[in-house]
Nucleic acid binder design. Structure first.
Length: 804
RNA sequence: GCCCAGAUGGCGGAAUUGGCAGACGCAAUGGACUCAAAAUCCAUCGAUCGCAAGAUCAUGGGAGUUCGACUCUCCCUCUGGGCACCA
């Protein structure tokens, strides 16, 4: 036997599988699409990709061996800012840059040995793909779920484009870290807020990690409360009937304690309400607030500032006249941009009231009255100083108070959300053109379906501009179009779509990737979807997952899908850190290059090491020594074959060992416990290495290893065991429950909870029999001399505890 | 500030979900092979005391429940992540 040379055998078998179209998948029985997140073609595969693709491949292969018709798809999420910025830097076209990267990464992905079905690979920059991205947009538009509106948007001055709220982290651009500005622009948006309730409630229908559910709940940020109307007192403009300030509150029970009202600086009523003598102060204040950046206002300076308008409103529950203030701790866009202030029961209002000496009225009794005097009491309790609602508990009081005001038309129950509509316009070149045409006469009109795709033109100058216009506006020939309604000259929309639109439906396309008539055939969709298991990174817990859930629900409502949740189960993988336990980055010089590791150890070793290093959802530092252990293991397997494998009789003991391992390793893979799966294989080799194995027994061993190390097992299976067909067409070995249970077991003997001895006993003994054996044991007797046995605990086949 | 996850040898981690803590691997030490090194193989490997048999301690810290706690409950410390003036 020659030395184990992974480089040689891996290439060989990869070519073999590809030539035989091994992993090309057709709809059949027991279909299973194992979904991982398709890659962004950044240029080079990094070790994180290996974790994301080659480890789930173990599960894909196992599922295939256990009788599933497995589709393990892949593709490229290829539009987007980074490619465009890289192309600008290198002064080449983003398309050339991206396509080169795709070529390179395709090659590298094949090196992982994963059973990707390349015949179904999708690429979001392919017009045959983005035709359907545009089509989905049009359907959303028809349904009123896509609309154009002038709003304040997050503008990244460096990338010169709009960002969705989700792409802003602590006031900075998620991509480049530049401080984000607010700009008022017309933007195309998806009405995701219409789906807020369903996106929230349906989380109960799917199996996601708790962290993901929490993250999504936070994003959606539903709070249930009420809208209350406060009549304006003696409004100087109230000629035609009473005017009101509306507030949103979750604590209507504290209404009797509302001693003032606060408007956000952006609130339209601010100047109206302000008394003439206060106008100067107010304007000065508004100017001050305007000069603060969003970051200063929301993240840095949380001290309360504000000014009195001099105006008053009337508390609708007790008709008391209360002052109206303006303060920037109230957020303009949330709720109504106005709040009722209850300083006794809200910390922020408390701080403000203390600072400006406003009155504080307690209306909820503290559970422990001896509690602190200083500060707001925010918990619930029985109402006090609350007229007819005296003594009613908060929860009930909320309902009663709103009900009462509702009769007078002064209140209603209301849910509020943090979630905003999804701004999908991007003023950049490298994206899917939004398929709309603007006609001076007819306004915005959709591009007719038959004219899709609206192809992205090739531009010499695709650099972003400062004026908020997309570079596509420079393509004069391209922008010219006919209005689809009146036929007159009109102009194409020049914004492109956020790449999250591209990736919000790609998994649907895997079911039917070359269909030219529909985004996918209904029957094929039914065969593969919804996705039974989606494995990916925690960075997509909110945006991508929420967006694709939304698009799926919308397509479902439009009648195109039978299901309204795209992924039944979601599991996250961890992050691989550098050997120094820091995030891998070029500047730190701690990047592990998988190409180099493949050269040194081969794909099988890397796959197994990534599996072995810890729980899959945890990640952790790459250990240069640790990988040696796995490499050694594969070498031992390789050399194992040199031992005689044809003894006279089949060894029962070996069968038993294999039987147990089959059950355990299979269970580990199903539970994504790849680390214990690998250790199980190592234990198995330890147990078998000094034994004689039949050809069949060795074959069984190889099958257990095959999902983890597809190349070495194929080599040994075909060239050494002389099998004609691939090991990857074999079924996972059957195990026999009966073989698992016979034989003696170790019985642990404790005295007062401390282990004193271990005895081998026959399985299934009764308590009486065990008691006789244990108490008769010389070694145990010495602990019991002169003691009374108070209690004898027996856990069947496992342990006894003698309490003295 | 709030929410979530986590803390186990020198290191990565395991523990049938309340039943032998430290599986498996790495590193380390000693030995075999070798002129030598690498590779490989054998042995040791949580701490303390002990020649040994063995004993005691030990899963971030402190209490509790239990015959029995890494596992459950309460309090605290630290680490990672998310949200954050959202009314």
């Amino acid at each position: 036997m020659p030395k184990y040379n992974p480089e040689k055998i891996e290439k060989k078998w990869q070519r073999y599988w590809e030539a035989k179209k091994f992993y090309h998948t057709k709809e059949g029985k027991n279909n299973y699409m194992l979904l991982t997140e398709f890659a962004y073609p950044s240029g080079n595969l990094h070790i994180g990709h290996w974790l994301a693709f080659s480890v789930p491949d173990i599960l894909a292969r196992y599922l295939k061996m256990t009788g599933h018709n497995v589709l393990y798809p892949t593709g490229f999420d290829a539009f987007g800012l980074p490619a465009e910025n890289a192309a600008i830097q290198r002064n080449i076209n983003p398309r050339d840059w991206t396509e080169d990267n795709i070529k390179q990464m395709t090659k590298q992905l094949k090196n992982t040995g994963a059973m990707f079905d390349w015949s179904r690979a999708v690429s979001t920059i392919d017009p045959a793909y983005y035709k359907w991205t545009q089509w989905i947009f049009l359907k959303m538009y028809e349904k009123g779920l896509a609309y154009r509106e002038k709003t304040f948007v997050n503008w990244c001055p460096k990338d010169k484009t709009v960002l969705a709220n989700e792409q802003v982290k602590d006031g900075h651009c998620d991509r480049c870290g530049t401080e984000v500005e607010q700009k008022e622009l017309f933007q195309w948006m998806f009405k995701i807020t219409d789906y807020a309730d369903r996106l929230l409630d349906d989380l109960d229908k799917v199996d996601y990690p708790e962290t993901v559910r929490v993250a999504q709940r936070n994003w959606i940020g539903r709070s249930e409360g009420a809208l209350l109307k406060f009549p304006i007192f003696n409004s100087k403009f109230s000629k035609g009937g009473q005017e009101y300030i509306e507030v949103f509150t979750t604590r209507a029970d504290t209404l009797f304690g509302a001693t003032y009202l606060v408007l956000a600086p952006e609130h339209p009523m601010v100047t109206k309400l302000t008394k003439d003598e206060n106008l100067d102060t107010i304007n000065k204040y508004l100017e001050e607030v305007k000069n603060k950046t969003e970051i200063e206002r929301l993240y840095i300076d949380k001290s309360k500032t504000g000014v009195n308008t001099g105006g008053y409103v009337v508390n609708p529950i007790n008709n008391e006249k209360i002052p109206v203030w303006v303060a920037d701790y109230v957020i303009g866009w949330y709720g109504t941009g106005a709040v009722m202030a209850v300083p006794a029961h809200d910390e922020r209002d408390w701080d403000f009231a203390k600072k400006f000496d406003l009155s504080i009225e307690k209306v909820v009794a503290m559970a422990q009255p001896e509690g602190t005097e200083d500060g707001a009491y925010e918990d619930e309790g029985d109402l006090i100083n609350s007229g007819e609602f005296e003594g009613v508990f908060s929860k009930e009081a909320r309902k009663k108070i709103v009900d009462k005001l509702k009769e007078k038309g002064l209140a209603d129950f209301k849910k509020n959300y943090k979630l905003h509509d999804w701004v999908l316009s991007r003023q950049r070149y490298w994206g899917v053109p939004i398929p709309m045409i603007h006609c001076d006469k007819c306004g915005y009109q959709p591009v007719p379906e038959k004219d899709l795709p609206v192809e992205l033109p090739v531009l010499e100058d695709f650099k972003p501009t400062d004026d908020g216009r997309s570079p596509l506006a420079k393509a004069e020939g391209w922008t010219m179009a006919k209005c689809s309604k009146c036929g007159q000259d009109a102009e194409r929309e020049t914004d492109t779509m956020d790449t999250f639109v591209d990736s919000s439906w790609y998994f649907l396309r895997y079911a039917d990737p070359i269909n030219q008539k529909e985004f996918a055939d209904k029957k094929k969709l039914r065969a593969w979807l919804p996705v039974p298991l989606y494995i990916g990174g925690a960075e997509h817990n909110t945006m991508h997952l929420l967006y694709s859930r939304f698009i799926t629900k919308a397509l479902h409502d439009l009648g195109y899908l039978d299901f309204d949740e795209p992924y039944l189960t979601r599991r996250n993988h961890g992050v691989i850190l550098g050997p120094d336990n820091q995030k891998m980055s070029k500047s730190r010089g701690n990047v592990v290059d998988p190409d180099i590791e493949v050269k040194k150890f081969g794909a099988d070793t890397i796959r197994m090491y990534l599996s072995f290093m810890g729980p899959y959802d945890q990640g952790g530092p790459w250990n240069t020594d640790g990988i040696q252990g796995v490499f050694r293991f594969l070498n031992r397997i390789w050399n194992f074959i040199d031992k005689p494998t044809e003894p006279k009789v089949s060894d029962k003991e070996v069968d038993k060992i294999l039987n147990k391992a089959t059950k355990e390793i299979g269970g580990d893979i199903r539970d994504l416990k790849f680390n214990t799966g690998v250790s199980g294989l190592m234990k198995l080799l330890n147990a078998l290495e000094d034994k004689w194995l039949t050809k069949k027994q060795f074959g069984t061993f190889l099958k257990l290893l095959a999902p983890f190390a597809p190349h070495i097992t194929e080599e040994l299976w075909q060239t050494v065991l002389k099998n004609k067909k691939s090991i990857h067409l074999e079924a996972w070995p059957q195990y026999d429950e009966a073989l698992l249970i016979d034989g003696p077991v170790d019985l642990v003997i404790q005295v007062n909870g401390t282990k004193r001895d271990v005895l081998k006993i026959t399985k299934g003994l009764s308590e009486e029999e065990v008691k006789r054996i244990v108490l008769g044991n010389e070694n145990i007797k010495k602990y019991l001399v002169g003691k009374d046995i108070k209690k004898f605990i027996y856990v069947k086949n496992r342990l006894t505890n003698i309490v003295i």
